[in-house]
Write a protein that binds this DNA or RNA. Structure first.
Length: 410
DNA sequence: AACAGGTTCAACCGCAGCAGC
DNA sequence: AGCTGCTGCGGTTGAACCTGT
């Protein structure tokens, strides 16, 4: 039973917008805010459906939209986020605050996807296309770990995106209280994102990557991927698709920044913010009591929200049959930079992003060179594994370095 | 200049999720 | 619990534009 399309009314205009229509829409929203999109066209005197108006506004007329060519950094960010999030354009767009999801999607489809494909990188998996030839023995476990890492990161970013959406809603209603126009004109940009976070936010850093890499390197020494000490010793993540469920019994692990939370036998690794503003790993903002604590206690993968008008805090948990990771607190560029300024994966220090290689000609050369190098070194599966590790870690690394400080996230 | 084929991107479509009743 | 309305998201389309012949 499909609902009738919103635009099936006779007399409603479709197709390209005229400057007059734009003007009407702009003028109305500036004066009244958009309110209900459904009701807007009639009020604004437009022969359009609300959906069309919303699209025109969000993709074109909004004052905080940056148009024109994508910068190298933006390209990089898109590729990296796409590697983690897939086609979740809106989530990706939250990291590029002045770009719309539609624009990013178009840019991906018309430029980046082709570029990756041309270079032999599968734009869907972000792996070299011959990756499928990997043997299914040792590497599969490693691949599983990498995949799990990606899922973990993906889930985190998804939660962040959700938080941003929520904070947008909050800030929007907050602004509506302050301003009858419904959106902040003035500076024009960041009417929404500005309040989600910004300079007012204390630099709270939760050293997740350190913990992660600590766990990774530690476990790599033991021949496994992600591993947690403290419980069972030799547990590792096996399923590439595994995922974020189960573990009714496993007590939550909380990582500490040393990444060695398992060194005591308490099955908890504490995630401690390096800013020192939190002693418990649960980052709380002053005035947090102003907002409802949105925590819930699902045994499955879940995110906890601690929100404040100026801040967004995040708690995520990842459960696995043998382990549970809990991470709490916001991810800030500072935190990420700190964490990943010297990424250590297994026995390898990653100083330079792999993804960045994709973004210029020298990169293309480097890529093929590295392929040759692999061949020269015998083309072992381990090289592929190292490539994958490098790839995912450089994604995180570059994500950090490319995170614009005006991102609504941070 | 004219045409064909390729590319870009604004806009549309249909579906899913959520909230309110 | 089920229905309805609204919004947001991702995939797709097609007109406009570009490029090569």
């Amino acid at each position: 039973m499909g609902r009738s399309p919103c635009c099936d009314k006779v007399g409603l205009k479709k197709g390209p917008w005229t400057p007059e229509e734009d003007q009407k829409l702009l003028a109305y929203i500036e004066e009244h805010g958009h309110g209900s999109w459904r009701a807007l066209p009639a009020k604004a005197g437009l022969q359009r459906c609300g959906k069309s108006c919303r699209l025109r506004w969000t993709n074109y007329l909004r004052p905080d939209i940056k148009r024109g060519k994508f910068s190298l950094q933006e390209e990089q960010t898109i590729i990296q986020l796409h590697a983690l999030l897939g086609n979740r354009w809106s989530a990706i767009a939250t990291h590029l605050p002045k770009r719309t999801d539609n624009e990013i999607k178009n840019y991906w489809n018309t430029h980046l996807k082709k570029r990756l494909a041309k270079m032999g990188i599968d734009p869907v998996t972000h792996k070299p296309k011959n990756d499928a030839l990997l043997s299914s023995d040792g590497q599969s476990k490693n691949a599983a770990n990498l995949s799990h890492m990606a899922q973990w990161e993906s889930a985190r970013l998804e939660a962040e995106a959700r938080l941003v959406r929520e904070s947008k809603l909050r800030s929007h209603s907050f602004q509506e209280q302050l301003s009858p126009t419904g959106y902040v004109s003035g500076s024009g940009s960041g009417s929404v994102s500005a309040s989600a976070s910004t300079s007012a936010q204390p630099q709270q850093c939760v050293d997740v990557l350190k913990a992660w890499n600590g766990g990774w390197s530690k476990s790599s020494e033991g021949g496994n991927g992600l591993n947690t000490t403290g419980i069972g010793g030799d547990h590792h993540l096996e399923s590439p698709t595994s995922t974020l469920t189960f573990s009714e019994n496993a007590p939550p692990l909380i990582m500490n920044s040393s990444g060695t939370g398992g060194e005591n036998s308490i099955p908890m690794i504490e995630l401690v913010g390096t800013s020192g503003s939190s002693e418990t790993g649960i980052i709380k903002e002053e005035g947090e009591h102003d907002w409802k604590n949105l925590r819930n206690s699902s045994h499955h993968y879940h995110h906890h929200h601690l929100m404040h008008e100026n801040t967004v805090s995040l708690t995520s948990s990842l459960h696995h049959p043998d382990m549970t990771i809990s991470m709490e607190g916001p991810w800030t560029p500072e935190f990420l930079k700190l964490s990943s300024s010297h990424i250590h994966v297994g026995n390898v220090d990653i100083e330079e992003g792999f993804t960045s290689l994709l973004l210029n000609d020298s990169g293309e050369r480097s890529l093929s060179d590295s392929g040759k190098d692999s061949d020269n070194s015998g083309g072992s599966g381990n090289d592929c594994y190292e490539d994958n590790k490098n790839y995912w870690n450089s994604i995180l690394y570059n994500l950090v370095n490319s995170s614009p400080t005006d991102s609504p996230m941070f």
